[in-house]
Design a protein around this nucleic acid. Structure first.
Lengths: 152, 152
DNA sequence: TATTGTTATACTCTATAACTATA
DNA sequence: TATAGTTATAGAGTATAACAATA
């Protein structure tokens, strides 16, 4: 079925199937769409996806070294410096010299950082709920995450 | 089950679930992983994902205008110029003045472009087959594409 | 010698404004 | 006036090399 649609006018449909029915292409499109909606949802908090992930990870693992946090997030430690500088500049995180290794920075949320993260988690939970609703429910979400895991 | 793993040593496991059990995060990771493998597979052809998509789309829709091809691929027409310049510089595509509108460029594959695309399609088919195998079969692929479509 | 954080740098991708030649 | 292609430019994200302080 489907295949080529007859050209009714000069503005005929493009034949896109062979190009766009591809896992990598669909994956990229979906990711861009989700990130776009994420940016909208977090616009009021002025928070980017990587910044949210860093805050949440520090919140769940206070005192970890910069490099540990960066590595988990898949961010090079050199690039993580600017990200954490931004969060620290907003008073959300702080660096303390790691006990036992004066080269390393242990990362913590400030009091304000904790309050901010609580708000951000609410936004994220709502956002996630919207994604799950789009997918058709928690079972569909589990299926998606399982399939995505197989591609890594 | 699962939840927090007890810290057996000083190098305790990080608590990552709350941060990484998120659709957007998993989507980004899977997309990066797939694109990385795509780049490896296409290294010998020196072809990037967007370049492959452009070639395949032009091959299936010869004579279409630059802006049409760019729009389908989600690339701004300003940025598409450099991409198509690259393909044209390699002798794979050519611009012809569109009949009926001398402002527009109609895009075509050259003979060499057609041969090259045939090779690229083989690489892509193998790559796609590998992705499908990782997912667990064609049915799992269909499920994934269906779920991804719901997120757009 | 090796590692942590940092700076500098470069390359890709993406986004916008403005120009030209046509329409 | 509006549109197709182009140029220039700026902003993210990402990658590597090299340095100082410390291990």
């Amino acid at each position: 079925m489907s295949a080529v649609q007859g050209s009714v006018t000069d503005e005929a449909m493009l034949e896109t199937g062979a190009t766009t029915d591809i896992i990598g292409y669909r994956l990229r499109r979906a990711q861009l769409s989700v990130f776009q909606r994420f940016l909208s949802a977090f616009e009021a908090l002025d928070l980017r996806p990587a910044e949210y992930s860093a805050l949440a990870l520090i919140g769940d693992n206070p005192g970890r070294k910069q490099t540990e946090i960066a590595e988990i997030l898949g961010i090079k430690r050199a690039n993580f410096v600017a990200l954490i500088n931004g969060l620290e500049g907003r008073g959300l995180t702080e660096r303390r010299t790691a006990p036992g290794d004066r080269r390393a920075n242990a990362l913590y949320l400030t009091k304000e950082g904790e309050r901010f993260l609580a708000r951000a988690r609410k936004v994220q939970d709502d956002f996630e709920a919207d994604c799950i609703a789009r997918l058709g429910g928690p079972k569909a979400r589990d299926t998606l995450l399982e399939l995505l895991g197989k591609l890594c």
